[in-house]
Measured scan of single mutants.
Amino acid sequence: VLHDLRQRFPEIPEGVVSQCMLQNNNNLEACCRALSQES
């Protein structure tokens, strides 16, 4: 999931992506929604 998200959101730091995964229990859809608001 992390690799997938890193490719979709290259401009977001890995730490932020990891934190997002923890908050969303590694749910790819939820992470994508959260990160798209972030970027």
Rank of each mutant, 00 (worst) to 15 (best):
P13R: 02
Q19W: 10
R33Y: 06
M21V: 07
E38T: 10
C32M: 11
Q37D: 12
D4Q: 15
Q23I: 03
R33G: 06
Q19G: 07
E11S: 09
C32F: 04
A30C: 03
L5A: 01
Q23R: 11
C20H: 04
E14R: 03
L22S: 12
F9E: 03
P10Q: 00
Q19S: 12
Q23T: 08
Q7M: 13
E11M: 08
C32V: 15
D4G: 03
L5E: 07
Q37P: 05
V16K: 10
V16P: 00
V1T: 11
Q19E: 14
F9T: 02
L28R: 06
A30V: 05
I12Q: 06
E38H: 14
N26F: 14
M21P: 03
R33V: 10
N25M: 05
L22R: 14
S39M: 11
C32T: 11
R33P: 03
I12L: 11
G15F: 10
P13T: 02
L2M: 09
L28S: 04
N25R: 06
L2I: 11
S18Y: 09
N26P: 00
Q7S: 13
N24D: 01
V17S: 02
A30D: 08
G15K: 14
N24C: 07
M21Q: 00
R8E: 06
E11R: 06
S18N: 15
V17D: 04
C20V: 15
N27S: 05
M21L: 12
S36P: 10
V17P: 04
N25V: 01
V17Y: 02
D4Y: 11
C32Y: 08
Q37K: 14
R33M: 08
C32I: 15
S18C: 07
V17K: 00
N24H: 15
N27E: 09
C32D: 05
D4P: 01
A34S: 07
L35A: 02
E38A: 12
L28A: 05
L5I: 15
E14K: 01
Q37S: 12
C31Q: 02
M21E: 03
D4W: 13
L35W: 01
V16A: 07
E14N: 02
A34Y: 07
D4F: 14
V17F: 03
P10T: 01
N27G: 02
N26D: 06
H3F: 07
R33S: 09
N24L: 03
G15Y: 14
